[in-house]
Simulated assay, not measured.
Amino acid sequence: MTGNLAHLTLAFGLLGNVVSFMVFLAPIPTFYKVYKKGSTEGFQSAPYVVGLFSAMLWIYYALLKSNVMLLITINSVGCIIETLYICFFLFYAPKKARMESLKLIVLLIVVGFGLIVVLTQFFAHGVNRGVIVGWICLVFSLCVFVAPLGVLRQVIKTKSVEYMPILLSVALTLSAVMWFFYGLLLGDFNIAIPNVLGFTFGILQMILYFVYKNKKPVTDEKISNFEAKISEMEEQKLPEYKNQKITDVVKLETLIHSDILPVAAKLNKNGCDQAGHVAVEPKAASYVPNHTIEVAA
């Protein structure tokens, strides 16, 4: 029975390593866009700095334990990948974004992680050291898993799943399931408890994705309604414009006839007036009235 439990624990740990490795590779398309664009404008370094801090924290916790080697393997790989992401980001980032990223790195990695290591090494002893670091990992992981609440709120508000990739949500959910059972079988609730929250939020993300994936975004609906109102207003004005145009044409024809008919009435069959003068129509613009021109005999 104990052997079967150990094999099951190993299986979940290995599966957790594989799925977590896929999650670590998920930002590669983002950095390809950065490379093609030549700038990190519109992107932030915070997720990668937080990911590096989390990986370092779990490695430190695993080093204080005796039976969680699989935590060390995946988080060591995570440290390397996140460091490469951060270096890539700093290379392409504008000066302002680069300075903000460096401040976050110093604050979280150097100061934050450094204080945790120093304080637990000097002020905690034996088993208590692992318990304290375990609680820190637990609280930090809960904060990380709560972060998707902002994404869920945005999806519900906009009715759009544009910024919630389904493959990443599935991978995070599977990762949470694997690490939950790994922690449960080891009897390590610092590993198991945060992943309950991760699994719950992962399921919520997938449900929202299938609810809103075929729905029209709110912004598109507003634009469509606005365009429909404009079209309706133009259609209402069009008959008035047509009527006005017809009225103007009638007035113009009336004006032309009023100028031509009196002159035409005075002409005889040969095109001459009573005085024997020939009426000649000059080539002029349509709005210029006709004139009678005398021609010497």
Rank of each mutant, 00 (worst) to 15 (best):
Y182H: 08
P262M: 12
A285S: 14
N190E: 06
L267A: 07
F226N: 14
S231P: 00
P282T: 13
F199N: 04
L255C: 06
L152H: 05
Y212T: 04
L167Q: 14
T247W: 00
K216G: 01
G276C: 10
N190W: 06
K229D: 14
M178W: 03
K283E: 12
S286Y: 07
K157Q: 12
T158G: 01
I193T: 14
L149T: 12
E240H: 05
P165R: 13
T254R: 09
C143L: 14
V278F: 13
I203C: 13
I207P: 06
A171V: 05
D248E: 10
P282D: 14
I246V: 14
L208N: 04
A264W: 07
Y241F: 04
Q205M: 06
V280K: 12
K237M: 12
N195S: 12
E240M: 07
L174G: 04
L197M: 15
R153C: 01
T254A: 11
L142N: 09
F180L: 14
K283N: 13
K269S: 15
A284Q: 15
I230V: 15
I223V: 14
T158A: 02
T247E: 09
M206I: 13
T247N: 05
L204M: 11
E240I: 14
M233P: 01
F180H: 06
N214S: 15
F226H: 13
K266P: 00
D220K: 15
E227G: 02
M206A: 00
K157V: 07
V177R: 02
M178K: 04
N270T: 10
M164T: 09
P217V: 03
G187F: 00
V161E: 01
A275I: 02
L204I: 08
I260Q: 07
Y241N: 03
P239S: 12
L261V: 09
E162S: 04
A192W: 00
Y182P: 06
M206G: 01
L186S: 04
V218G: 01
D188W: 02
I223A: 14
L172D: 09
N268Y: 07
Q205I: 02
I156H: 02
G150V: 03
